[in-house]
Design a protein around this nucleic acid. Structure first.
Lengths: 195, 195
DNA sequence: TGATTTGATTGACTTAAGTTAAGAAAGGGG
DNA sequence: CCCCTTTCTTAACTTAAGTCAATCAAATCA
């Protein structure tokens, strides 16, 4: 457990140095949980305000549209899945499942509220993190819009090469906005071209 | 000016009720600025930490890729453009320009810091707003990924019908992830189909 | 191990997007 | 009002993605 706490502290300190008292507070209230490969953390229709910070493993968001899974996001080590429905109070439109056995830090607004009251700097931290996530998300979206499927794939190859190993190809396909068949053909096309 | 302040207060109060002292503080430090149609608020390569809240008008983000403008976002009344480069300190990769004469509230981290120190609740507000923006952005991205160009266009027709009037079609095209020619053909296709 | 499920590939065909180029329509400024 | 710029449309052609179906490979499990 010591190790996973240090992992978390290292991550946080990239954004804000932590005092001892604050570390203790986190140690006392942080909830770490293990999930198994294939486990569902959230189903469509459920109400959940939980957020997840990935210590180890990989989780995935997907929609089911006309019976088809459409994967929209993967979260791996040091990445945060923040809930979409916490503000509007609507039921979830998507699923969250575990791609691998994973260790996650789980949070929710009630826990955060308590922490913010005790340590206002945590709210500062969360604001900064949230702004950073927003910036990252906007950049990814812009990148997606301005690229062809092939450019997206090549880009993924460079920016997150691990994903190609960790995740089945049919999930990557919808993540890239195409069908599994198209991705398969694209790969053979690229292989032929680079030979 | 009274009117534009009230507009801002109304927006904020959707998220958090404001006390009189807080309203006064905003009144004293808020910077409103008018921009003309076509004016550039940010150029590629510039360093800027300014954020913009649109009181009236429309602004647009676009990249220039191989000489082509690729529009990635429009911001209209009550929407916020938060800077992407404030954290990483990198030069901007995109442009921001005014689609129409616009009235904007301008902010930057220095101003925010002063406000946060005087009124910690502002930081709370900014955290909440930022989380809401993140959720909205993630939902838009997921929607984009899981839709065909045609579905995106039809969806835009329903969710932001005003944009089609305010913005030239070639800018909408890249916003939808397609070329102007494709959008034009798509429109005739749809018109023929619905007749 | 053998059987079953799951994931990846391939092929044939359809559809729509990208590209290039030309011309028409609309809008703004003098 | 006309000219010029900007925006939109149309056409012909190329390319690649979607779809459906069959097959192949690999992982899982009884």
């Amino acid at each position: 457990m010591k190790e996973t706490e240090n992992y978390l502290f290292d991550f946080i300190s990239r954004y804000m140095p932590l005092g001892e008292a604050e570390k203790i507070a986190i140690r006392e209230s942080a909830v770490f949980r293990n999930y198994q490969k294939g486990e569902l953390l959230l189903k469509q229709g459920q109400h959940s305000k939980d957020g997840y910070f990935v210590i180890k493993g990989c989780i995935r968001c997907y929609y089911v549209i006309e019976g088809e899974e459409k994967t929209t996001a993967f979260y791996t080590e040091s990445e945060t899945l923040s809930p979409l429905c916490s503000i509007n109070q609507l039921p979830s439109e998507y699923y969250v499942s575990c791609v691998e056995d994973s260790l996650l830090l789980v949070s929710n607004p009630q826990m955060e509220k308590i922490m913010f009251e005790k340590f206002p700097r945590f709210e500062s931290l969360c604001r900064i993190l949230s702004e950073a996530l927003l910036a990252k998300n906007q950049t990814s979206f812009a990148n997606f819009k301005t690229s062809t499927p092939e450019q997206r794939y090549v880009n993924l190859l460079h920016t997150r090469p691990d994903l190609l190993q960790r995740v089945p190809q049919y999930q990557l396909a919808s993540y890239l906005g195409i069908t599994p068949e198209s991705l398969s053909r694209m790969r053979t096309r690229l292989a032929r071209r680079n030979k």
